[in-house]
Design a protein around this nucleic acid. Structure first.
Lengths: 356, 356
DNA sequence: CTTTAGCACTCCGGGAAAAGGAGTGCTAAA
DNA sequence: TTTAGCACTCCTTTTCCCGGAGTGCTAAAG
C-alpha cells in the first residue's frame, strides 16, 4: 500500500520540472534535448550530471525516449500525456491574440458550408497546423410545412419549411398534367400526412394513400416525399472540411515526402475518420492514442462548439506529436468559444442562407 | 525568303523523331536521356555518334537542355511545346479506359458544388496528378418570378425562380407586422417592378417606389431585393475546387518539401488564379508559359465543357513539365466530353438541387 | 557531305573513411 | 546526494575517391 501510494506520487517536483523542460524544448526545437541545455534552463542551480541522473530515471520510467544511446532525450507519448495532464500551464492568450481570433471570426455569414471552410482556414492559419472542422446535427429534423406553387401546367414549385427553420424549395416537373386547382389540395394532403415525419414514415404513409388518390396526384406526392427525404438527409449529412494541410511540409517531421504523403492523403480522402470529441469540450490525442493508423504518430487536438440549439460543431488540429499543445489548446478553445458566440448571436436571426 | 522558308521547315524528320523520343523517354523516366538509349530505340539503324550530332544540334536550337556537360539531354519548354504541337500523337483511349471514365462519371447528381468536387477527384485519380475544376455562368441570371408565402404575422417565405430555372427560397423576418392580405400585393409589386432586372436596376427601382408604398411594405420589398441580389451574385460566383494535391509528393520533382509546399499552398489558397482556357477547347501551358510565378515550372492542361446552355465549366490538371501530355490530354478531353454529355442529358430535367 | 568508331574528358553519384561533436554513463570524490 | 572528470558511443558532416554514363572531338570510312 505504501508502494502504491508511492506510485501515485511517483515523480519528485524536480523530475516534473525537468520533464516539463524537456517537452517544451523538444516542442520548440524538434531535436533531442541534452542534460546541459536543461541544466542551463534551470538557472545553474544544479549541474548537468545531476540532470543526467534524473533523465536516466525518467527514461527508465517511460516518460522519455532516446533515439539512440548518447543522444539527448525526447518525450515519449506517455511523457506528453503527463505533460498535457499535469504539467502544461493553460496558456492565457494575450489580448492581441484574442483580438486576432475575434478578427478571424468576422466571417462573412454565408452558407454554413462556406462559413465552416472559412473558419477552418482561419484556425489553421492561427495555429499553423492543418485543421479540420465540421457541423453535426444533434436532433433530427423534420419538414414542418409544405407549400405548392403553380408555375405552369407541368411545373410547380415545392416549398418546404423544416423544423430547424430552414426553407428549401424545389422545382417539380410533373409527368402528368395536374390542374392548378388541385395543388392546394395536394399541399393540404402533404401537410396533414407527411409533416413532422421521418423519411421512413413518409414513404410508409405514401403507400397508405396510394389507392385513395388519383395517379397524377400520387406522382406529385411521391416526388414531394422524395424531395423531403433529400432535404432531411442532407441536413444530417456531416461534412468535414480540412484546411492548411500543406503546412505539414514545413515541419521537420514531414520532410520525408512519403510520410507527408501518407498523412496528407488521409486528410484529403478519409477526413470522415478524423477523431471527434466524445463528451468533453476538448480532447487531446497523443500519437498512438489515435485509433487510425495514419494518425499513430501525429497528435490531434479537437474541441467542440455549439451551433444554435440543435447542432454541434467540432474543430480540430492535426500536428506532430511534438505539437505545442498549450498554444493549440488555448487558441482552439478561444476559437470554439468564438464560434459558439457567433452562432448564438445569430439565433434570433435565422441563418441567412439555408445550409445545403 | 529562302532562309525564312528554311526556318519554317527547320527540323529534319530524323531530328523530329529524336526529339520525340527524348521527350517521351524523359516523361517516363524523369532522367536525362543519352544518345545510346535513343539509338537503341531507333532500332540500331543509326549509331549513337550520329544521334549525338543531332542532339547537339537540337540543343543548340533550344529544343533540348543539358543539366550539365556530359549529362544526357532533357526537353526544354520549347521542346515540349514542339512536341505538344506537332509530334505528340493524339492518344486514343482504350475501351477499358473510356469505360473507366464513364464509370467515374456515374456521379451522384447532388448539388453542383458537390458534383464538381466528385468529378475533380475522379479526374485526379485518373490522371494521377492534381486536378482542379469549376463552373462559370456564361449569361447573367435574373429573377423571373417572386412569390410570398405567409408563415405567421412576422414571418413569410420569399420564393424566387431564376431565369436558369433554379428556385431559391428564404425566410423573411419582418420588423413590422404585415397583414397577410398584403402579401399578394407585395408579390405583384415585386414581379412587376423587379423581375428580370439586374441587382443594380433593382436597387434603383426600389428607390423609385420608396414613397409610393407604406413603410412596412417598403421594408419587405427591400429585404426581398437584397435576397434577390444575393442569389444572383451567388449564381455568378466562380468556385474552384482542387483535388489530389497530395499526389505531387509522389513525383520525383517534388521530393523537395519546399518546392512541394510552394505549389501545394498555391493550389490550396490561390486556386482562383489557376489558368482558364480562353477560347479553345483544350489548352496546354508549359512551364514558363504560365503567368503565375508558382506555376512557372509546372505544366497545366485545361479543358472546358458545357453545363447546359448558359454555363461553362473548366477542368484542369497540374503537373511537372515532364507530364505525360498525350495521356492527360486524351483523358481530360474524354472527361470534358463526358461532363458535357452528363449535363446535356439532364437538360430536360432541371438540376435536382439548386446550385448554391 | 554524312556517318561511324575511337578516345579523352567531364561530371555526377555513391560509398568509405575520417573528422567532429554532442551527449551519455560511470566512477570517484566532495 | 551532488558534482566533476573522463572514456565511450554514435550520429552527422565532410572529404576523398572511384566508377560509370555521356559528351565532344577527331579522323577515317562510306
Amino acid at each position: 500500500m505504501g508502494g502504491s501510494l508511492e506510485g501515485v506520487v511517483e515523480l519528485s517536483d524536480r523530475k516534473r520540472q525537468i520533464l516539463k523542460l524537456v517537452v517544451e524544448d523538444y516542442i520548440r526545437t524538434a531535436e533531442p534535448v541534452g542534460s546541459k541545455a536543461i541544466a542551463a534552463e534551470m538557472g545553474g542551480s544544479v549541474s548537468s550530471a545531476t540532470i543526467r541522473n534524473e533523465l536516466s530515471d525518467l527514461t527508465e520510467m517511460g516518460y522519455l525516449e532516446q533515439p539512440h544511446t548518447s543522444a539527448g532525450r525526447m518525450p515519449s507519448p506517455k511523457g506528453y500525456r503527463l505533460y498535457v495532464n499535469e504539467l502544461m500551464e493553460a496558456q492565457r492568450l494575450s489580448l492581441a491574440e484574442t483580438e486576432k481570433i475575434n478578427q478571424s471570426l468576422q466571417l462573412k455569414m454565408e452558407e454554413l458550408d462556406r462559413l465552416l471552410a472559412q473558419a477552418g482556414r482561419a484556425v489553421s492559419a492561427l495555429v499553423r497546423y492543418p485543421a479540420y472542422i465540421s457541423a453535426v446535427r444533434k436532433t433530427s429534423v423534420t419538414v414542418r410545412r409544405f407549400e405548392l406553387l403553380a408555375v405552369d401546367e407541368r411545373n410547380c414549385i415545392l416549398v418546404m419549411m423544416t423544423s430547424d427553420s430552414r426553407v428549401k424549395s424545389q422545382l417539380l416537373r410533373m409527368q402528368l398534367k395536374v390542374e392548378a386547382e388541385q395543388l392546394p389540395m395536394a399541399a393540404n394532403l402533404l401537410n396533414s400526412h407527411f409533416a413532422n415525419a421521418s423519411p421512413a414514415e413518409m414513404s410508409q404513409r405514401l403507400m397508405n394513400v396510394a389507392d385513395q388518390v388519383n395517379p397524377q396526384l400520387f406522382l406529385l406526392l411521391s416526388q414531394a416525399v422524395s424531395c423531403a427525404a433529400d432535404i432531411l438527409e442532407e441536413a444530417d449529412r456531416r461534412e468535414i472540411v480540412t484546411a492548411g494541410a500543406s503546412r505539414l511540409l514545413k515541419l521537420p517531421e514531414f520532410r520525408d515526402a512519403d510520410k507527408a504523403h501518407e498523412l496528407m492523403s488521409f486528410l484529403a480522402d478519409s477526413k470522415e475518420e478524423l477523431p471527434q470529441p466524445l463528451h468533453r469540450e476538448m480532447e487531446i490525442l497523443i500519437g498512438p492514442e489515435n485509433v487510425k493508423e495514419a494518425l499513430k504518430d501525429t497528435s490531434v487536438v479537437v474541441a467542440s462548439y455549439d451551433i444554435g440549439d440543435d447542432m454541434r460543431g467540432l474543430i480540430g488540429v492535426v500536428g506532430p506529436t511534438r505539437m505545442d499543445y498549450a498554444a493549440v489548446a488555448a487558441r482552439l478553445s478561444g476559437f470554439a468559444e468564438g464560434l459558439t458566440r457567433l452562432f448564438g448571436k445569430q439565433e434570433e436571426l435565422p441563418p441567412k442562407e439555408e445550409p445545403k
